[in-house]
């Protein structure tokens, strides 16, 4: 009886190993096309791609990450968009990362953007205070819930991409100064909130 149960477990284990390996090799459609849709230059804004630091490259590998510096009017912002299609583990809860890096979240509020909302954070570390905005976007809807992101990406992987588009994590931070005039960004560069 015990031997039979063990034999069934061996078979189950073999099936699990095969399925695990197979799932790694089945390609999942990524969000490259959406990332490429975001223009580098346009009326009222100009940007350039910024290479990732060694640490960032190590953390995000093998996910696709776009890091771009934009000048929008007088605002200079750094945009980081992470596509976890190839490795969802590269996409972390931004709040968790900020806390882990020693930042305290002083204020946190949702702001309306096209197709949903983004989260505007005021962060403090020692004497330094900065702002950051983040959201998850599947190209149509934007939200700030990491649980919803996990649910979307989990369903997507279990259904081999049939459940929808891969959500991107997008983070905006000011390059200079401490505040981000997101309302001006919304007006001057709406495409930033639409990809």
């Amino acid at each position: 009886m015990k031997t039979t149960a063990n034999n069934f477990l061996w078979i189950g284990l073999a099936v699990a190993v095969v399925l695990s390996l197979a799932w790694e090799f089945i390609p999942l459609n990524d969000a490259s096309a959406r990332l490429e849709k975001l223009p580098v230059q346009g009326l009222g804004f100009a940007g350039r791609d910024v290479p990732l630091s060694d640490t960032e490259a190590a953390v995000y590998k093998p996910a696709r990450v776009m890091k771009r510096l934009y000048q929008v009017g007088k605002e200079r912002v750094v945009l980081v968009a992470i596509d976890g299609s190839r490795d969802r583990h590269a996409v972390h809860d931004p709040l968790y990362c900020f806390h882990g890096a020693g930042w305290n979240v002083v204020t946190s509020r949702d702001v309306a953007v096209s197709g949903g909302s983004a989260k505007l954070l005021t962060l403090k570390k020692n004497d330094r205070t900065v702002e950051a905005v983040f959201w998850f976007s599947d190209g149509t809807e934007r939200h700030t819930s990491v649980l919803r992101y996990w649910l979307q990406t989990t369903l997507r992987r279990l259904t081999l991409g049939c459940s929808g588009e891969e959500p991107l994590l997008v983070i905006l931070q000011p390059l200079t100064g401490t505040t981000l005039r997101w309302d001006r960004l919304l007006v001057c560069f709406p495409l930033l909130f639409e990809f």
Partner: peptide, 21 residues
């Protein structure tokens, strides 16, 4: 309880397929 090994197997397989650590 052999069922525990089966539960572990199912959880690990789902984690691999869903990339959910």
């Amino acid at each position: 309880w052999t069922a525990l090994a089966w539960i572990a197997l199912a959880l690990a397989l789902t984690s691999a397929m869903a990339q959910l650590n």
